[in-house]
Every structure is written in structure tokens, then in C-alpha cells.
């Protein structure tokens, strides 16, 4: 992480950072400041920049996304991401059709590149898995058709 993105991030996450430093987090946990701006970013590049420090990535076939082709209920879309890349530092999940594309970002701490969770999708779009490995970003995507959106009322 270079100095500029660090500054940007610390400013953006100011409010949450205050909450964190006020002792609301469980003791003994070392957590990075919550990237609030990244979760409110409207496009994928901006969101990625906020959470992993760069908005550009290369396509990789070594990242596998397991998600349904058609999701009947957009509020529960099971997604499993595995990667054969070595030295995976983080895995980020984005849904590009959502209002704010960033869904979650997992830091792996040397654990195997495997994450499975359930996400919300507002409408049909791509699920994007972005893997950080050796300081570079690699991504793969899969289209999921949503018949009932998960973000509406």
C-alpha cells in the first residue's frame, strides 16, 4: 500500500475508525480501518481501489466462481470462490449490477484460497471475484440472472 491510498483510506474510514478506537471492537483484534468509501463507490474500479488499493486487474482462469446461472431470489445468492493461484492475499466479491458493487473483501492470512458465502443481488449482473496475489489483482466473473431482486422493498 502506498502512502496516497493509505491517506485516502484513513480519511474515508474516519467515522468508523473513531468508533473502533473508542474500544467498541473486541480487545486483541488487529483490524484495518473499515473502507467505508469503497462500500459506497458506484463502480467496480473505484470500489476496488478503496479496498485493495488498485482498480485495474487481469483476467485469470485460475479463479473459479461457483454460483447459480439463474437465481430465483436475488437476496440469497450462494457464491463459492476458489483459486489455484499461489500466495493469495485477499479475495473480494463484487456484484457489478448492484448500486454499490462491493459486497465483501476477505483477507486470507496465508489460508487456502477458498471462500463460500451468500450475497444479495439487486438485478441480473456479473459476480466478480477479485483475487490479490503477489501484489497483483486477478479477476474472474460469472453472470447470474436474477428473477426477483434482493435489494428492493
Amino acid at each position: 500500500m502506498n502512502r496516497r491510498t493509505l491517506l485516502k483510506r484513513s480519511l474515508a474510514a474516519g467515522a468508523v475508525g473513531v468508533a473502533a478506537s473508542a474500544g467498541l471492537l473486541a480487545p486483541g483484534q488487529v483490524l484495518a480501518a473499515y473502507p467505508n468509501a469503497a462500500f459506497h463507490a458506484k463502480d467496480t474500479a473505484e470500489a476496488l481501489n478503496g479496498v485493495v488499493g488498485s482498480g485495474s486487474f487481469e483476467h485469470s482462469d485460475d479463479i473459479k466462481i461457483k454460483a447459480p446461472d439463474i437465481a430465483e431470489n436475488g437476496s440469497v445468492v450462494p457464491v463459492t470462490i476458489t483459486s489455484g493461484l499461489s500466495g493469495v492475499e485477499s479475495i473480494s466479491i463484487l456484484a457489478d449490477a448492484n448500486n454499490s458493487p462491493l459486497v465483501a473483501s476477505f483477507t486470507m492470512h496465508g489460508s487456502p484460497a477458498f471462500i463460500s458465502t451468500r450475497i444479495k443481488m439487486g438485478k441480473t449482473g456479473n459476480v466478480l471475484a477479485v483475487v490479490k496475489s503477489g501484489g497483483k489483482l486477478f479477476a474472474s466473473k460469472k453472470e447470474v440472472k436474477v428473477t426477483i431482486g434482493g435489494c428492493g422493498g
Partner: peptide, 24 residues
């Protein structure tokens, strides 16, 4: 004592979240 996985989530994770991961 070792952190094996840490994550930041947005509101787009489903209600009553499920998560699965691996570690050594």
C-alpha cells in the same frame, strides 16, 4: 492466537450470513 481470516463486509451479504473458509 493466529488470525486465519479477516473480512470486511457491506450490506450486500445476505441476511443471517453464512460463510465458509479453510485454514491450516
Amino acid at each position: 492466537d493466529n488470525t486465519v481470516m479477516s473480512a470486511v463486509w457491506g450490506g450486500a451479504i445476505s441476511k443471517n450470513p453464512y460463510v465458509s473458509f479453510k485454514c491450516s
